[in-house]
Structure formats: C-alpha cells, structure tokens
Design a binder for these strands. Structure first.
Length: 916
RNA sequence: GGGCGAUUAGCUCAGUUGGUUAGAGCGUUCCCCUCACACGGGAGAGGUCCAAGGUUCAAGUCCUUGAUCGCCCACCA
C-alpha cells in the first residue's frame, strides 16, 4: 500500500472543504452533556458593516490558537462569535448609500431608514460570517449573537433601566463633543486629537464709556458672538482695576462684564480670556460659577445661528474669516500669531468636533470604576502585557462621566418617555422587548406620565452609544438578565483577547458593567473575564499603520487565496511578540507557506514509503494504532535517534505549553517550526531513511513506529497554529480513517520520562561531526557528487563508539564512502583535509592534493581566534574578585571551557608545525 | 503638559528573572534539480546590540542622562 498525495501543498480547496465541514457539523459547539473544567471566551464582535481585515485576522488567529489548544487539553470550550451593530459606523455607511441616490434619512423617516439599515446588515453581516467560516475560526456558530438581537436588546434595556433606577444614569444639559456632520453627540473616546497649526487672534474689547480696552487672545474668534464675559485672574495687577467693569463686545455690541476667576492663566496670551459658555468646556464651567448667560450661536451643522446676528447662516470657518476681517476693518484686531494646537476630530468621519451645549444622557463612572480598579489591583483580572495594566488603571482612575446618548436612529432606543404636559420622564416599567417587523423594541411602553398622569408621552428619540451594548457582551450573549444554563456554565469567561485600540472603549466598559450588573458576592464571580491579553496591531512591511487612504492595507482574503490561511496564521503567530506591533510582509507569509509545504512533504514521504513498512511485515495497526503509538519510543539496536527525538519532543512540548500559557505566541510558533523543520525533517527523517528498509527487522519496525508516533504527535502540536493542514493530514493518516477531527484529539503534554540529556549531547556531537565534514568539503570546493573517504580519531572512546555505531546515517548524510575510526592522531600529510575540534580530529581524503597554503591560512586564523578567546577567559579567571564572587558553577564552567580551548589550540599548533 | 514604547545583521524582528561563541525569517555569496519537498538540501559572509556615564566579578539585559522615531492620554483660551 502507498498513499498518493500531490507533490505540493495546495491549500485553497482543502481549506474551503475543511472549513465547510467544521461549520456544518457544528464541530465547535461544546458538548451539552459534558462536564469538566470550562474554558470560555467571546469574540470581540466585528462591526457588522465593513469586512474582515488583517487586524481581525491577527485577533482571530490568536484567539483560535488558544481556543484550539484549550479544547485539545480537554476543557469544555466555548468560543462565542457575533457581530456589533456599530451605531454610527453603520449609519454613516447607509447614509452614504442614500446620498448616492440623492436621499437623506430624514426624507425616508425613521422606520424606513431602519429598514434600509437592516437590509444592509443582512448583506454585510452574512459576508462577514462567511469570511470567518472560511478562516476556520473554531467558534460555536450555533451561539452566534448580534447586539440588536431581541435577547441582547432586552439586556441593554435592563442595564439601562437598572443604572437609571440607581441614579447612575442621568440626563442633563452639558457641554459635549458634537460632530456637525454626524449630527450627534460623541463620547470623549470617540474624538481624536490632531495637532494643527492654528492661530491666536488678539482682539480689543473696549471698556464701556472709556477709551480703555482689554485685549483678549483667542484661537476661535467666531465664538465671540456668544461671549458673555471676559475673565482675568483675580490677582493680576494689570487688570485689577477693570474687574467688575463692563465691556462692549465688538461686532455685536453686547455689554459683558469683566470677571475674576482663578482658572485664568496669567501667562497665556494677554492674561485676559473671553468667556463663551455655550462653546467651550472651560468657559461653560466658568459660566456656571459666575452664573453667566449661555448664548448658543451655532446650529447643529455648525453654521452661525440666528443668535449670531449679521453672521447668521455662515459656516463656522467662513464666519471666522469674516469676523476677523470685520475686526481688522474696525481696528480692533491687535495682532495675529501662530499657535500650534491640537484639535478634536470625529473618530468616524474626521470632521472637526464642536463643543456643544446640549441635553444628553450620561453615565456616572466613578462608582463603576472603583470596583474595576480593585479587581485589577487584586489581580482578579490579570492583564498581559504588564504595561497595559498600568494604562488601564490610569484611565479608570481619571475617568469622567460617559455621554451615552446618540442622536442616531440605528441602535437601542432609550426606554424613557417624556411628558408633553409636565416634562417629567417616565421609564419603561421593565426591560421586556417585543418583535415588531422582525426586530426588537421595548415592550412595556408606559401609558401615562408617572408624575402628572398625562397621556401625552413621547419616547426619547436618542439611541445608546454602541459601546453601551458592547459593554454587556460577555453576559448579554449568554442570556443575561435571565439566569440561563449558559450564563451559569460559561460566565465569567476565562479570557479576553482584544486590541489596545479598544482597551477603554470596550475592555474597561465590560469590566465595569460586568462587575456592577452581574450577580455574585465576590469580584471573582462578577468579573467578565479572568484574564485580558492585549494584542498589538498589524502594520505594513515598513512598520507604518495600514490605512485605506495610504493604500497600504493588506486584504487577508487575498493573501489566503494566494498562500493559504495556515501560512498567514503562522506568520501572524510567529511575529506576535507581546507588546510590539507586527510589520507584516508577503515574503514572510510565503516563507510559512513553504513551511506548510514542508509538513505536507514530510507526510508525503511517510505515505510514499508505506510499502517498505509492509515489506517488513508491518500492518497499519501494528504501525500506528493509538495503543501502539502510546508505547513509543520503540527502541532498537541503535536507539540514539529515537531517544534523541523523543527527548526533543519533551522539551519542545514543555516550551510550547509554557509559551501559550503566557500568550507568547511567537515563541510557541518558533519552537514548533524549528522542531519540525530542523529536528524532525533535517535530522530524524534523514537519519531514519536507511533504517526504514533495512535488513534488521527489529530496527525497521522501531523506526516506522516511532516515525509515525512522532509525526502524529507533531501534527497535534502544530494544529492550533495550522489547523487546516494538520486536519487534512490527520485524516489522510492510514490509521485515522474514521477520525472525526484532530481538533478533538488531545494536545501533547511534556513527558519528562523522554527527557534524555545524554542522547541530546551525543546527537550534538554527531551533528558537529557531520557539520565538520560538510564544511570541509564545501570549503575545499569539492564536487558534491564526489564520494570521499574519511578517518576519524579521538582520544575519547565514547566518541569513537558513537561514530562507529552511527556509521550508516553519517555515510548517508555526508556522502562519504568510507569512514575509518582510529585512536591515534593522524600524521601530517598534505593529501587530506584535516579538521580539528576539542572532541575529535577528522581527516578527509579528497583524492587530490590539498591546497596546503589555504589550509595553513585557515588554521592560522583559527589559531588566532582561539588564542584571543583563551586569553580573555584566562584573565577573567585570574581575577580574584571574579573567583570569589561569581557562583561556583560559572567559574567551573569557564575553567572547563578554557581547558577545552587549550587542547584544541594545541592540536592546531601541532598540525601547523607539521604542515609548514 | 503627562505617560508609554522602540532603537540589536542589508530589511523586518526575537532575545522572561544579568552569566561562557547575541539568534530567526527574508535577502545575499558559493555548491547541489541526491529516489518527501528547488515552496528543497548543504556550506558561508554579515552585528563595537543608538550615545555617554554608572551599578556589578560579569550588562544587549539593571540605573541615570541625552539623541532619534513612534504611540497613548489631556477641558493650554
């Protein structure tokens, strides 16, 4: 029997097929009846708009590695997927589509607009799901959730109503970040600050009935239309006499007072600041302190409002220009200076944000943050890497109230009704939802105003910040507020893996809301996840952030089509050192595609040679039945290669498990890569080749069994990193005809019994021996096909024996025709290449006269290197402080090294004297 | 303004408690289409670990300062 497989690994069809099977068989739904330790994790839900990008790919790869690893370790494992309705982001996309049709959402009306968004959601969401399935993520699709699904809608209502009852959610007229394009309030997090080359305008404000004036400096002259005071520092000698006087506000001719306030910075500008309570957060606070009028001079779309008199209707920057010109014309513009500053822009649409006074809903954060801080400090929630923990804590410590209302139509509508008569607010009596037109909305609509009994009730038009519902994700997805089986089983989740870009948006909010809303006496019971691993972001090959405008984005699906998912996954994993961003290049991915091919071909080699096993009388069962495999390693007359590879397996397994435990994906991937390619393919398989069809049946049987055992072991080790390839090969293994999936097999556990330092040491020596031969022939530029004879000498019996016993593989690996082993050192004839190490001396007969001069030059170079090395070490050893303070093992180690180098040195000297 | 990170081979990056000759992938040079794999095999070259001080028997690793680059936070008119 032999199994035919193609010469090169072509991932596309294989991956598509495997992904489909995994999905259709619901392979990753945790068995309902199983008990045992639980591992649960939620997918950071991608925005329903857009598509899977490389950042998702990194995140999904890391989660999937951990999840597959845990599942194989025997945990009852749930990875819960889903999508986020992504309030603004989605609404913006659909509004853009409408704009292309020449429509505005107001023309459609709320209901029709929502219908359009749902339509788009179905399309886009379906695409994302298909993409994720194609990526092979091992999540439980039967539990997929969407933030606007009825049960989750209800969870949002429940959370809102509860926080509202508790007084943690309040409504009020405050200064908020307002996006004039999105026409909605934004939270602080949804704005980003950009440095900007601004200007500082110095404007004269005349004192009433006097020739005096005060010069104020401002970066936003257009807001002067709304000025209601000018403030100076109370102790500022320059202005002391003016405090309390009245100024005439230029252009609008309004009378405004000069007030004194501690918050004024005497050093800045002229030390006098115009106060615009309706258009600046500081001024708003000052206005509150001094009971100043708030004059809103701007419309929601950032044009000057009627309150701006002659400037009404002008766009804000056009107004600025005109105002500056008018001031100049009236001689009131003292001067203009450059002023570097930072401006806030809308994270979503990049429009400059306008601080705006408006009525919004807020969530008090201090009381919610306190338990979260405690949880992190007490390590109830552990955060990796360490520096993210500090950032997390700092943010919580300085937290401010969260503006949670958005003037959008797409989202969870606030379950509060306003009375048209008395203005009082009546909340829904409970969180139940009903389905209307297929979608959830609050069911328990109040019939009358809770205060005056009027029936004139209208629901608050606003929806909640999309992150409010995201903040409930780890429990809303499990059925909260009901006490469901899932919630009891899988909450708290074990781990969260998320990017640092949403640490505050999402991770921190989930932590706070979970701790507050969930039942349980202890933080441990309420915390939404026990561990938080914060991953980095993917950058382009030059380390530059990917963005559509720069055009350096990498489409993971394109890469996957070209090189396969496993190659991309492996590249991402091996580059994902905690705390540093990833510069991803296609070359790198191609490299791991080659690795996949290498694995494929190792399998091909096994399959190809099965006849040889049969020739030795082995059946498939004998070869690789699980119970037979379990007894590996089998040893034969020459046990060294087997002892060695299993010893390597023991340490590799320990390293992989340890690395994954600490989210050191790069280390785990690196270790399996080098084990498979270096140890397994380059040495073990090569070594075993002659034994696979040798005359010695015992040896052949042992080699075959071990080869299969190691190979299938390696597949399991590799599976979390390369799920498709390993699954495919697993099924092609002859003994696995009926196997369900490698992902349900057990993950290797390091077997300390296999650890065999002696074997590793001997192998290292053999590798050195072989390397020496290869090096010599390469340097002598000998024809690669030319067979050589060599002689080996060593004072050490163990070395001679080792070489003798492993004659076969040595011949094979080095293309020697003959190897003679002797005790005595060689003479010094010039017809051979001689290589000397501390352990042995090797003479390779080339059959031609060696280039003696080249040999001498090489030896001299080596001699000099050794001399230098020995001297440095000796002087170190001569240092009495070193001898007295350094640990004894270090000193002894150094002594041994020096002794060895000296022997080597002596040999070279001898050889040189012979040659010269 | 506050905080954080980075600087190691031509390029992109590893290097967890300080310890003997600092690693990987790609690229590059030389040899080989050897019966699993040219997406391969073999052998090389290539680094005063940003700079200057310091701690230590011992520093890529710890401390201080500086330079360059990057990121995050922030209500500096």
């Amino acid at each position: 029997m032999s199994i035919e497989i193609p010469k090169a690994y072509e991932p596309q069809e294989i991956e598509r097929h495997r992904a489909q099977v995994w999905f259709e068989t619901q392979l990753y739904r945790p068995p309902d009846d199983s008990r045992g330790e639980v591992f649960s994790i939620v997918l950071p839900p991608p925005n329903v708009t857009g598509s899977i990008h490389i950042g998702h790919m990194l995140e999904h790869t890391q989660i999937d590695i951990i999840v597959r690893w845990k599942r194989m370790q025997g945990f009852k494992t749930l990875w819960l997927p889903g999508m986020d309705h992504a309030g603004i982001a989605t609404q913006v996309v659909v509004e853009r589509q409408l704009a292309a049709e020449g429509l505005k959402r107001e023309q459609l009306g709320r209901e029709e607009f929502e219908r359009r968004v749902w339509q788009w959601k179905a399309e886009s969401g379906g695409k994302i799901k298909d993409q994720m399935i194609r990526l092979g993520v091992s999540c439980d699709w039967t539990r997929a959730r969407f933030t606007l699904d009825p049960p989750l809608y209800r969870a949002v209502m429940e959370a809102f109503l509860r926080l509202h009852r508790e007084g943690l959610i309040y409504r009020g007229r405050y200064m908020v970040n307002w996006c004039p394009r999105c026409q909605t309030a934004l939270s602080d997090l949804e704005t980003v600050h950009e440095s900007h080359e601004g200007k500082l305008w110095f404007i004269r404000y005349p004192v009433k009935a006097s020739n005096e004036f005060i010069i104020v400096a401002t970066t936003r002259p257009e807001t002067m239309l709304g000025d209601t005071a000018v403030a100076v520092h109370p102790d500022d000698e320059r202005y002391k006499t003016l405090i309390g006087k009245t100024l005439i506000l230029p252009l609008v001719n309004r009378e405004i007072p000069v007030i004194a306030d501690d918050s004024v910075d005497r050093e800045f500008g002229t030390g006098a600041v115009k106060v615009t309570p309706a258009h600046d957060p500081n001024d708003f606070a000052m206005g509150q302190r001094h009971k100043l009028a708030e004059i809103d001079v701007m419309t929601p779309d950032a044009h000057i409002s009627a309150a701006g008199g002659p400037y009404a209707g002008l766009e804000r920057f056009a107004a600025r220009e005109k105002i500056v010109q008018d001031l100049k014309a009236q001689g009131l513009l003292e001067k203009t200076t450059n002023h570097p500053m930072s401006i806030a822009i809308c994270d979503r649409c990049k429009t400059i944000v306008e601080p705006r006074l408006s009525v919004q809903w807020f969530c008090k954060m201090k009381p919610l943050a306190a338990p979260a801080i405690e949880a992190v400090e007490r390590d109830v929630l552990s955060i990796v890497p360490e520096n993210q923990r500090k950032i997390f804590l700092d943010w919580l410590a300085n937290i401010r109230d969260w503006c949670i209302s958005r003037q959008l139509w797409w989202g969870h509508r606030i379950p509060i009704w306003h009375c048209g008569k008395c203005g009082a607010m009546t909340p829904a009596s409970d969180s139940k939802v009903e389905i209307v037109n297929g979608h959830a909305q609050i069911a328990s609509v109040p019939h009358a105003c809770g205060k005056c009994g009027s029936k004139e009730l209208t629901q608050d038009p606003d929806v909640l910040d999309t992150w409010f519902s995201s903040g409930l994700w780890p429990f809303s997805t499990l059925g909260w507020p009901d006490d469901t089986e899932d919630l009891r089983t899988f909450y708290p989740t074990s781990l969260l893996i998320s990017g640092y870009d949403i640490l505050f948006f999402w991770d921190a909010r989930m932590t706070m809301l979970g701790l507050h809303l969930m039942r349980g006496d202890t933080l441990e019971e309420r915390i939404p996840f026990h561990q938080l691993y914060v991953h980095a972001i993917v950058r382009d090959p030059h380390g530059i952030k990917m963005s559509k405008t720069r055009g350096n984005v990498v489409d993971p699906l394109e890469i996957i089509e070209k090189h396969g998912t496993d190659a991309l996954r492996f590249a991402l994993a091996v580059m994902a050192a905690p705390g540093t961003d990833i510069a991803l290049s296609e070359e790198r991915i191609i490299g791991y595609r080659a690795f996949a091919n290498k694995i494929w071909n190792a399998a091909r080699f096994l399959f190809f040679n099965l006849e040889k096993a049969e020739a030795a009388g082995l059946t498939i069962d004998e070869l690789a039945a699980p119970e037979i495999r379990a007894k590996a390693p089998y040893t034969a007359a020459d046990a060294l290669p087997h002892r060695w590879i299993f010893s390597r397996l023991a340490s590799v397994t320990a390293q992989v498990n340890d690395a994954l435990e600490n989210f050191r994906f790069h280390e785990a991937a690196h270790v399996v890569y080098h084990f498979f390619w270096g140890d397994f393919c380059d040495w073990y398989i090569e070594w075993l080749k002659p034994q696979l069809s040798s005359q010695n049946r015992e040896e052949t049987v042992a080699s075959w069994r071990n080869l299969f055992a190691v190979f299938e072991y390696a597949l399991r080790l590799l599976h979390p990193f390369m799920p498709f390839l390993t699954e495919e090969l697993w099924h092609r293994l002859p003994q696995n005809a009926d196997a369900k999936s490698i992902s349900l097999e057990s993950f290797p556990i390091a077997n300390p019994v296999w650890s065999d330092p002696a074997a590793e040491e001997q192998m290292a020596l053999l590798q050195e021996l072989i390397g020496t031969v290869r090096n010599a022939r390469a340097e002598a530029k000998l024809d690669a096909k030319k067979k050589l004879a060599a002689e080996l000498s060593s004072e050490k019996t163990s070395v001679r024996e080792l070489a003798e016993r492993n004659l076969e593989p040595l011949l094979r690996l080095s293309y020697l025709t003959e190897l003679k082993i002797q005790e005595q050192p060689f003479g010094t004839a010039g017809d051979a290449l001689v290589r000397t190490t501390a352990q042995f001396e090797l003479r390779i007969r080339t059959g031609e006269v060696a280039d003696v001069q080249a040999e001498i030059a090489k030896l001299k170079k080596e001699k000099a290197r050794l001399k230098q090395d020995i001297e440095t070490k000796q002087s170190r050893l001569a240092d009495t402080t070193f001898r007295s303070r350094a640990p004894e093992e270090i000193v002894r180690g150094l002594e041994a090294t020096v002794a060895e180098r000296q022997r080597e040195y002596q040999k070279i000297v001898d050889r040189l004297t012979g040659l010269v």
